[in-house]
Design a protein around this nucleic acid. Sequence first.
DNA 1: CTGAAAGCGCTTACAG
DNA 2: CTGAAAGCGCTTACAG
Lengths: 342, 342
Amino acid sequence: MARATVHDLANAAGVSLATIDRVLNRRGGVRPATIEKVEQAMARLNYRRDLAAAMLAKQREYQLVFLIPTGVNTFMRNLATEVARLADLNAAERVSIRVIEVPPFDDDTLALALNGLEGTPLTGVAVVATDNALVRQAIDRLSVRGVPVVTLVSDVPGSRRAHFVGIDNSAAGRTAASLMGRFLNGRKGRIAILAGSMLLRDHAERHFGFERVLRTEYPELAALPVIEGRDNAAVAEEVLGALLDAHSDIIGLYSLGAGNRGVIAALRKRGLGQKICVIAHELTDHSREALIEGTFDAILNQDPGHEARSAMRVLRALTDGQPIDPGQERIRIDIYLRDNLP
Amino acid sequence: MARATVHDLANAAGVSLATIDRVLNRRGGVRPATIEKVEQAMARLNYRRDLAAAMLAKQREYQLVFLIPTGVNTFMRNLATEVARLADLNAAERVSIRVIEVPPFDDDTLALALNGLEGTPLTGVAVVATDNALVRQAIDRLSVRGVPVVTLVSDVPGSRRAHFVGIDNSAAGRTAASLMGRFLNGRKGRIAILAGSMLLRDHAERHFGFERVLRTEYPELAALPVIEGRDNAAVAEEVLGALLDAHSDIIGLYSLGAGNRGVIAALRKRGLGQKICVIAHELTDHSREALIEGTFDAILNQDPGHEARSAMRVLRALTDGQPIDPGQERIRIDIYLRDNLP
DNA sequence: CTGAAAGCGCTTACAG
DNA sequence: CTGAAAGCGCTTACAG
């Protein structure tokens, strides 16, 4: 027998379609006895709602905005590309996505961009946020207005954002330290740490996790103070180069931000590619090549495609009042060696 | 202005709805000139079809069957659980999923189960297959009948299966060897290899990848002949125990199949938990615990939730004639250390 | 608190 | 090769 519809339910319960709908969607204003009748009919007929029909009747449109920092940062560019693909693939499901590019490392402009969303029709926002009071306030304002906000890649824990789409960055740092410790396996020496900016929460958390494991589990490895490359290849090459020149006892490098091209250049120029154990973040064309030929020893990665899809799914579920599947939305820390490269 | 519908298209092109539908879905039987008119209207109005409406009108039902080996194998149990969850979550999207449990390591019964599907209404099959002629024939028979088949976890490359949902098992083996080689870092000794059965293609491929990297890149490590634990804890404990007793120079173990409980027991009983470098497969309650307390050094994992979802998506796309997103459907080899455990 | 009727944007026989 | 009409299973004003 075919699956039951609202009509079957209405017949079985002896009520109208409107009442069925009220019970189904818990709209209230229905006598308890009537609710009871409907629920019994649902159970008896094994009723399962048809989502496609509901979507059609509701005429719901999802208007999503993604705020992503611009610049030469390959990872962010890949993320923007994935979001654009997503927009294309989901136009048929009534979701339209707008990408707004914002300058990196600029709290004020980001807050302004968030606040500027006020006028537009909007059902959800995903933002690669900086953890700043103005930004937090802008996120809270949207949330209070009823627009769900998810943070992407880097979280703002104090805010009212509904969800964070990204990896556990402390865990990533800890993982980097474990790999480094095991790969170096008892050797003594200094470890360089290159971040983009310690004002970025994701970078700060990676650093925290890394240092923690290094100091407690691998005391033979001494971390140098973090240097900052501003997620920019040229800057990264310069600051890292200076550090390498100043310390001849560096045996490991944790590059926890962007700017891999600069890292690779600094190492190659000094012939240190194979000598220093290097763990870097984000799989890009450059980092992949460095991994294959041995300049990098491991790459920790977050998949921008997964993050884009997850943000969209979560934002949709949030506006539909649907549950979120934590297993599906957990963004994993991919570990790439030369052998499991995709 | 609201998005264009088929009605707008019909008006703009001066044709009927039926003709619009014929062009949209390339059903043929339309004059080229008419097609042209419609396509121009589509472009002019920026038409995007509404999937929910199409689904509703088509009344498409997806009837999927998943064939999964039974037994005490925790990974397979988890996989079956994930498939059941999926069935529940997607009932509202007109997909119904039936799980059929089959005995493990039994080609004939599996082929019989596949052939027995003939009668039932069916739009797709996912099967954890063995690579055997009878099974291959059964898969081909279904495919030829127009029922798309995807292989799950272990592939059958010679068959007409439409897609494989699982990890690259050779890459997994290579990754295990690399981790082992780097963790052992120059030490000399023997490496034990425990499989479930070398008749399983996924196990054979892991073994191949592992040996390949071990012999070419870590000649100081000598692999012992593979032993088989039948993916059963008791058998695994026994055969591994015997091997450990016979060779005192084993410094590494690659457990590439199931039966982790037996592996853990064999190691603990001999006080070898911390002394031998162990790489195992699949994150389960037991393997997780072994990783945390140091008996295992790394776990390679495939996510059963992802595999179940991916199989469903692929099967749906196949019956709808929709494209598959390779990035989304690639099942990754998760590497877990104690530090990035979920 | 409840119901009758129209409508969402497609697809599907059926007729011509 | 083309079209008019009904229908898919919901939701939504509106009326009472």
